[in-house]
Structure formats: C-alpha cells, structure tokens
Design a binder for these strands. Structure first.
Lengths: 161, 161
DNA sequence: TGAGATATAACCACTTTGGTTACAACTAAT
DNA sequence: ATTAGTTGTAACCAAAGTGGTTATATCTCA
C-alpha cells in the first residue's frame, strides 16, 4: 500500500486504515490453553513457571508466554519476569469462562459472525440483509457468551478428579 | 505501508497519522451469504440465476455457485443446471437459521470451540481439562445454536423494509 | 556475576477464505 | 442440430491466523 501526498501548505493529515479479516473454522485453542494455564496457577501451592505449564499443556514455552501475556494484559494474572512465577489477580470464583474468552480472543469488534458487506442496495434483500441478520446473529452470540459467563474457574476446577 | 511526500515549496507541515488496524476473527461470511441467497430465492416470483444473485450479494458468481452447491447437498434447494434457476425444497417457515448454518459447514466436526489435545496425563489439570472443558463448551455452543434455531427464514424476511 | 526466568522478534509450515479464470456439461429455444 | 445461457468444478491465487520454533534481550535473585 502506498500513498502519494502533495502538500502546498501547512496542513493536518489523518489516515485511517481499517483491515478486517474473517477466518474461523474453530475458535482458537488459545482459549482452552488459557483455561488450562489459569487452572494450574489456581491449583499449584507454589507459583508455576512458563516451562512447567508448557510441560502440562504439552507445547512450546513460548506459546504459553504469549497467552500469559494476554491474560496479563486483561488483568487476570500478574507474571514476574526474572524470578518467574505467576499468580491470579482475582479470586477463581470471580473469573468466568467469558472473562478468559475475551482475554485471549482479542476481538475488538466483539462479533462472532462475519456478515458480508457491500450488498446491492437496489435490491430489497441487499438493502436489508445486513442489519436484520446482524441483529439476529448478535442474539445468538449473546446466548453463547451468557452460557460462558455462568461458569467460573473454581466451578470448573471442582469437577477435576 | 509507505508514504511518499513531495513538497513544492518551503513550508511548515504538520502531519498527524492515525493508523487503526482492526483484526477480527469471525465465522465465515458463507453463512450470511447463504441466508442472502435463500432470501432472494424465496422473494423472487421467478427463479433466480447465480449471476443475478451474485449481483445482489456483490461478489463473483462462482462464490455463489459454491454456496448453492452446499445448500443443495443439505437438501434446502434444488438447482437446475443448463436452464438455470433455483427453488426451495422446504417452506421458508420450515427453514431455520440453524439449518442454513449447518448447511454451509462453517465449523469443523460441528464443534465451535477448538480444544488442545495431548495434555500431560501425569498432571491433575492435564488429565481433566479436556473432558471437563469440552462438556462446558458444548453447552455454550448449544445455547448459540438453539437461538439460531428459533428464527426461520420467513421470520427474517418479514423484517425487510 | 551467573543461573534461570520472562519478553519479544522473526520465521516457518499449514490451513481457511474469498476471489478469479477456465472449461466441461447441461437445457431450452430456435 | 446449433446456439446462447447457465450450472458444475477444478485449479490457482493472495491474504491472514495458528501453533510451533529458534534466537536474543532483559530481568531478578542468590
């Protein structure tokens, strides 16, 4: 992408670049890994390191650190660089699956369903489909998220054998 | 991204560059396009061709044909090769958004959430996380799908202006 | 200062997606 | 029968996300 600007006087330029990408066959396993990570932190008597967590999740430590960074940014955990170890910033009774879902999915637009745009407005369907369908799909998304919000980290852990 | 600035005379220039990049991961627009296609077929007095639909959706006809093939395989429509035109195989009152959602196969193995596998079984969390989380996520997926099942094609169309 | 940990950049192979071109097969009208 | 218009696919493409990997810088405590 390139811009050619010729300025003849003092001015102020605002460039807004919006990129929207839509790809999801399945919601990323980052979510389930994040739940795994938080479960470990909750259950361990000592603070756990990224390498230890990687051993339990069975993946590369960098993958764990990437997710830990998101959980940290979301205010769910604090991680100590250098000495190592992480701890919860909220009680496991106060952390829901929805909190974790939001932490790792980084959906600024917070929309599960992609809806095609630029339909032909000269057609009745094209004029209406986007808004009508979007409101309907938002309801479906809400139903899913409300179900996630009903389960807390502590409730999940309580079901472990 | 690159900027090329050519100044024709000495002048003071203030440039404010605001870059907003939104990356949104969403369920494929195949789903919304499929709803668009079925709406057109329902509303049109004559049978509509793929090219006509492509004009309303504002995309390439092959994209439409691909989705029509999925709807055909799901038993929702019949398409006449050669002469062209498609018609519903079920009444629009009997087609729900969930039917269309399933027809276009937007999720893998009918599971919305991906869950990491091969966790370390020697760890309590690793032993339990997959089954416990999977059952919880199935509930959330179900909540979403049940909401989609509540809306029929005819109800959606009734909201068009 | 050294050991061990986190943070991050860079790169990789793989996959889905939406779009596109090309071409074969089909149907009805002429 | 020929022809025009349509559907059905195959093949290819660029863009983007994902999970993994290596390498390096930074941080903390003993």
């Amino acid at each position: 992408m390139s811009f050619f600007l010729r300025l003849t006087s003092a001015c102020e330029v605002t460039i807004l670049v919006t990129t929207v990408v839509m790809i999801v066959k399945q919601i990323s396993t980052r979510f389930s890994m994040a739940v795994h990570i938080l479960s470990l932190i909750t259950l361990s008597p000592n603070e756990v390191t990224g390498d230890y967590i990687a051993g339990s999740v069975n993946t590369n430590p960098v993958v764990i650190r990437r997710i830990m960074g998101m959980l940290k940014k979301a205010g769910l955990v604090d991680v100590r660089p250098g000495v190592g170890g992480a701890f919860l910033l909220k009680e496991p009774e106060a952390i829901t699956l929805l909190d974790i879902y939001h932490a790792v999915n980084v959906t600024e637009d917070n929309r599960l369903f992609g809806v095609h745009e630029d339909s032909n407005v000269r057609c009745q369907v094209g004029r209406n489909i986007e808004s009508v369908l979007q409101s309907e799909l938002s309801e479906a998304q809400s139903a899913m998220e409300q179900r996630l919000a009903q389960t807390t980290l502590s409730q999940l852990i309580a079901r472990f054998n």
